[in-house]
């Protein structure tokens, strides 16, 4: 089954990379222009009718987003991953929400988390997980989460030491006994 899929895809598209991860699990990489065509062909003629996930990876060093569409064929229980690279600035990816209505939710999430816009999605820009977010999208790798957290939610007063004796010594009382104090002095030396 997967062999036929491989052959069909190879004839139709210039595949950049083709990895067969398991006997029913195929990962193909296509170029950006033919990504949507490949997804549509997988749906219409190869039987991958179910969209499981749209995922995005931020490759900051190479200045690109890697988009991946994960499709499944329940009849043969085989999985097809189609991925493509898109430039990081003003990233625009065609929407699939009129083919799979469920894609709309994934696309809204990706828009919110990475700032990738999907023209054609009727609900694009609606709040999905974050409400009233004003900063750069939080899942981009150049977003400094800790700095943001300290700025907005305030300091968290961390402990300076990790030695439990400093904190529970007084309460437990063991370290205050003569024996305990002796042991503590010995350990200090």
């Amino acid at each position: 089954m997967i062999d036929k899929v491989m052959k069909d895809l190879e004839i139709r598209f210039p595949l950049l990379q083709l990895v067969r991860e398991q006997h029913n699990y195929l990962h193909v990489k296509v170029d950006k222009a033919s990504a949507i065509d490949a997804v549509l062909m997988a749906k219409t003629s190869l039987g991958f009718k179910t969209l499981q996930l749209i995922s995005t990876v931020d490759r900051l060093e190479e200045n690109r987003f890697q988009m991946t569409w994960i499709l499944e064929n329940y009849g043969t229980t085989s999985i097809l991953l189609i991925s493509a690279d898109f430039p990081r600035e003003d990233c625009i990816v065609p929407s699939l929400s009129d083919i799979w209505p469920a894609a709309s939710a994934f696309e809204r999430e990706i828009f919110e988390m990475f700032g990738v816009s999907f023209p054609g999605n009727p609900r694009e820009g609606e709040d999905f997980l974050l409400e009233g977010w004003k900063d750069i999208p939080p899942m981009r790798r150049d977003f400094d989460s800790e700095e943001y957290s300290m700025r907005v939610f305030g300091e968290r007063q961390p402990r300076e030491h990790t030695d439990p004796r400093q904190y529970i010594g007084d309460i437990v009382g063991e370290w205050n006994t003569p024996m305990g104090a002796k042991r503590a002095r010995k350990e200090k030396k």
Binding site: L129, L130, F143, S145, E146, Y148, S149, F153, G154, R156
Partner: peptide, 8 residues
């Protein structure tokens, strides 16, 4: 503590 979305 360093999450962008949960308060401290």
């Amino acid at each position: 503590f360093d999450s962008y979305n949960t308060l401290n």
